[in-house]
Design a protein around this nucleic acid. Structure first.
Length: 835
DNA sequence: TTTCCTCGAGTTCA
DNA sequence: CTCGAGGAAA
């Protein structure tokens, strides 16, 4: 700084510097000083003003912090009404709009200014002699609310216009003289990143979470306490002017926006001047493509006839201009009502509440269902049946309930609670201590769980029975043809044909109609009567069987059998299964694809796996107590063992790729390990080793008393704990069986692994986006064959990311972490080299 | 014990 | 794709 000056001069200089920094940050998007520097200058100005209160001006940057709350908002009458715009939802409507204008102006290609339509709150800002004096909401267009104090806190809104005629301009700011009175119209909004950040903070500190950026902006502006508004991350874009007195504006909309920008207002840099309907539609498409990537929410684009003379010529219809229109995108959010909250029972019994919604168009599709995740989520949102809610289907595909519109709640709506019993089987619904999910306790006696189990078994990633969709599983189970997975392998072609008839015709009349063409003309009446009778007796299944067998006996060729043939063939194909697929298909809790693969790799053999004492599963990396117990629990059930036997014998399921246990399994595999893995209280690694040196066999330990344990080096309390443990039913057997299993594992496992090193050994690879030459699964399998570990998400431990078409967040994360990234060509070249 | 990373499970619609 | 929770490392 130069020589000391009067406080007044210094204050003026500080204000200019702060205003300039603000302008560069919010309008030009080219910050010229760091945040800390800005804060320092602001603090200096604040101190100066505190020392010399007479220097404080209403447009000083220090006045943005917000003053004491007001009781309510005053009414403001807009000198020039804030108009609403007509809407266009289709190309056709836009073409009509342009045609009307072209006809009236008698010009084929009128010029338009096109800009994004921000999803925020329209406001009007009044400047007198360059100073911001009043800001108002749009209200009904004629009268709004005075929110000046709140708008003052929005840093993107200039408190004083740049340029000007009073000559106090040491920084030589550019700009034209502004009118004596100027009203600027624009949109206050909350940038997405700021919204996320704000909510993150609110969640951590128990504050109020905002439903979406738009509500955030609207709610913030309507705060009676401007100090609260000051904390909200609001921004602003100018898009027009209202009253202008004592000055001139350019003669077109685009030039006016450029002028506003010079005066210090943020103006969207997506604004363009385009010609004719094609120009507009092209603009719409280009903005639409960028929509998700923009830093703020938009709900469409706005087209305005650029030339003001043209605008005047077009005039108005009622309250909307004929020279402008809003072209809306399909809404990403919609309001709808909750018609019911139903419970879905998953494969594991998880009871998931799902909201049945009155159908609404959201982002181009009709949404009728939205998951509510769990009871906690419902409680957090306080969703009730009958509520009006906001549904979103944003960047991701899956609709979610964002918020409840509290004002529209019916008076009699009751808080929702999880039902006590399963809606399908009537078993109790319970929640494990510390878990978020409630589960139906019915297990396989619950038809819902049985169906899900079978569906899972047949799914693509499991046994891959093509053609066995949800509906067929449902009907097969309901008909009693399939009770367990092994029954699938007993299905005959005839049974499937019967099933098909039931599925295709769910009323007796439809059933009769579908078989009639196949029936012998002379017996047709009698057969149809029989079907009706059986159906009336609620024996629809028998009716279908009867109809099918008669029809088929009469006319075997004409009944469509291809579907049944295909399904029988698909079931047959699945008999030849890899061990890991079968393990996954069994649907053991906590055992997904990855765990199933690891089990297959380490133990190699189903007979071994299904009889293993549970602590030994923990020898596999990534399998801990919880998963091991779950495996043990599954194989303990006689029904499950029976089902496996059934699959292998009656079902003729053959397992491919049997191999000996992994050599790595040998490491540290002895009785002491077993004692530790069995999670016996107080038995640590060291103690177990000391113990097994004195008592080297399971039988010895089972028979020994506490004295023997203390003699073997255990502290007294530990010896007692071990004895207690051994008193529990099943525990001695666990030790004895475990010892036997260890012996056989050691006998079966080879001394050293013979697998040779692949080029990607020990490397973690993540695949994202779509590949043209193969599916992600295929690519993953090829990479695994070369020794890579294919993971699902990017982290610090990832070595390589292969990004295909339309890669999303994972690619971004990889770039952020500086991880090596390949495109498809590089992947193919690599696979080629190592084929 | 805390923190980070994976895996499992559940979900919507064309 | 997201959430919750299991597993392992720090």
């Amino acid at each position: 700084m130069t020589a000391p000056r009067s406080p007044a001069a210094r204050a003026a200089e500080l204000r200019l510097r702060l205003e300039d920094a603000n302008y560069r940050y919010h309008v030009l998007d080219e910050p010229n000083i760091p945040d800390v520097e800005y804060d320092r200058l602001l603090r200096e100005l604040d101190e100066l003003e505190t020392a010399h209160p007479e220097l404080v001006t209403p447009d000083s940057p220090t006045q943005r912090v917000g003053n004491a709350p007001s009781a309510k908002f005053a009414e403001v009458r807009h000198a020039i009404p804030m108009l609403s715009l007509g809407n266009a939802f289709s190309d056709g409507e836009v073409q009509d709009f342009v045609r009307r204008i072209a006809d009236r102006l008698d010009r084929p290609l009128p010029k338009f200014s096109a800009e994004p339509k921000l999803d925020g709150l329209a406001i009007s800002l009044r400047y007198e002699h360059g100073a911001f004096v009043q800001g108002a909401t749009r209200g009904d267009g004629t009268k709004g609310e005075d929110v000046t104090a709140n708008l003052r806190t929005v840093k993107a809104i200039p408190l004083r216009l740049r340029g000007g005629k009073d000559g106090h301009d040491p920084l030589k700011l550019r700009g034209k003289d502004w009118p004596a009175v100027l009203e600027v119209r624009g949109e206050v909004y909350m940038p997405r990143a700021a919204f996320e950040q704000y909510n993150e903070h609110a969640r951590l500190h128990g504050g109020k979470v905002l439903a979406n950026p738009r509500n955030g902006a609207a709610g913030s502006l309507r705060q009676l306490d401007p100090r609260i508004t000051a904390q909200r991350p609001l921004a602003f874009f100018a898009y027009g002017v209202g009253l202008v007195e004592g000055g001139e504006l350019p003669d077109s909309h685009s030039a006016t926006l450029a002028q506003l920008r010079e005066w210090g207002f943020p103006v969207s840099n997506l604004t363009e001047v385009v010609e004719g309907a094609d120009g507009l539609l092209d603009y719409y498409r280009r903005i639409g493509e960028r929509r998700d990537a923009l830093p703020f929410d938009i709900d469409g684009v706005v087209y305005k006839l650029d030339d003001f003379d043209d605008q005047r010529e077009m005039g108005f219809v009622s309250r909307a201009p004929r020279w402008a229109i809003a072209h809306k995108f399909p809404a990403q959010e919609q309001a709808t009502t909750v018609e019911a909250i139903e419970i879905q029972i998953g494969r594991t019994g998880a009871a998931t509440p799902v909201a049945r919604l009155a159908p609404v168009q959201v982002a181009g599709v009709v949404v009728t269902n939205a998951t509510l995740h769990n009871a906690d989520q419902i409680a957090r949102l306080d969703v009730r049946v009958g509520d009006s809610v906001i549904v979103r289907r944003a960047g991701d595909v899956i609709p979610e309930v964002v918020a409840v519109i509290a004002e529209r709640r019916p008076a009699d709506a009751l808080p929702w609670t999880m039902p006590a019993t399963c809606p399908v089987c009537g078993s109790e619904i319970v929640r494990e201590e510390g878990e978020a999910v409630w589960r139906c306790s019915g297990e396989l006696s619950c038809p819902a769980q049985r169906k899900e189990t079978i569906r899972h078994f047949a799914s693509r990633r499991a046994m891959d029975i093509e053609g066995l969709g949800d509906k067929y599983v449902e009907t097969l189970v309901d008909a009693g043809l399939v009770r367990g997975v092994a029954d699938l392998y007993r299905l005959t072609r005839d049974q499937l044909l019967q099933l098909k008839l039931v599925l295709d015709a769910d009323t007796p009349d439809a059933l009769a109609a579908s078989v009639q063409p196949h029936l012998p003309p002379e017996g047709s009446g009698a057969v149809l009567a029989a079907i009706q009778r059986l159906d009336a007796a609620d024996e629809g299944w028998r009716a279908a069987a009867l109809a099918q067998s008669i029809a088929f006996a009469w006319n075997p060729k004409k009944i469509a059998t291809k579907w049944a043939d295909n399904l029988v063939a698909a079931i047959d194909r699945s008999r030849d299964a890899a061990l890991e697929r079968l393990l996954f298909a069994l649907g053991i809790q906590h055992v997904g694809e990855s765990t199933a693969k690891a089990l297959a790799l380490w133990f190699g053999d189903l007979d071994l796996i299904r009889r293993l004492p549970w602590p030994l599963y923990k020898r596999v990396p990534d399998i801990g107590g919880e998963v091991a117990r779950s495996l043990g629990h599954f194989f303990e059930q006689a029904g499950n063992q029976q089902a496996i036997d059934d699959l292998l014998t009656a079902g003729q399921v053959r397992i491919r790729d049997g191999h000996p246990p992994s050599a790595k399994l040998r490491d540290g595999l002895h009785l002491a390990t077993l004692l530790v893995e069995a999670e016996i209280p107080t038995i640590t690694n060291l103690r177990a080793q000391a113990l097994t040196e004195v008592l080297p066999t399971a039988a010895g330990i089972v028979d020994a008393g506490p004295e023997a344990f203390t003699a073997a080096g255990l502290p007294e309390a530990s010896a007692a704990a071990l004895r207690d443990w051994l008193e529990q039913p099943g525990h001695p057997k666990l030790l004895l069986d475990g010892e036997a299993a260890i012996a056989s594992l050691l006998a079966l496992a080879p001394e050293a692994d013979t697998a040779q090193a692949g080029p990607l050994d020990g490397r973690t690879v993540v695949l994202t986006g779509g590949l043209a030459s193969m599916s992600r699964d295929e690519a993953g399998a090829k990479l695994e064959a070369l020794g890579a570990k294919v993971a699902g998400s990017v982290s610090k431990k990832t070595h390589l990311v292969v990004a295909g078409e339309n890669a999303g967040s994972k690619l971004a994360k990889a770039q952020e972490l500086g991880i090596e990234i390949w495109d498809e060509a590089q992947l193919l070249a690599f696979l080629e080299r190592h084929a």
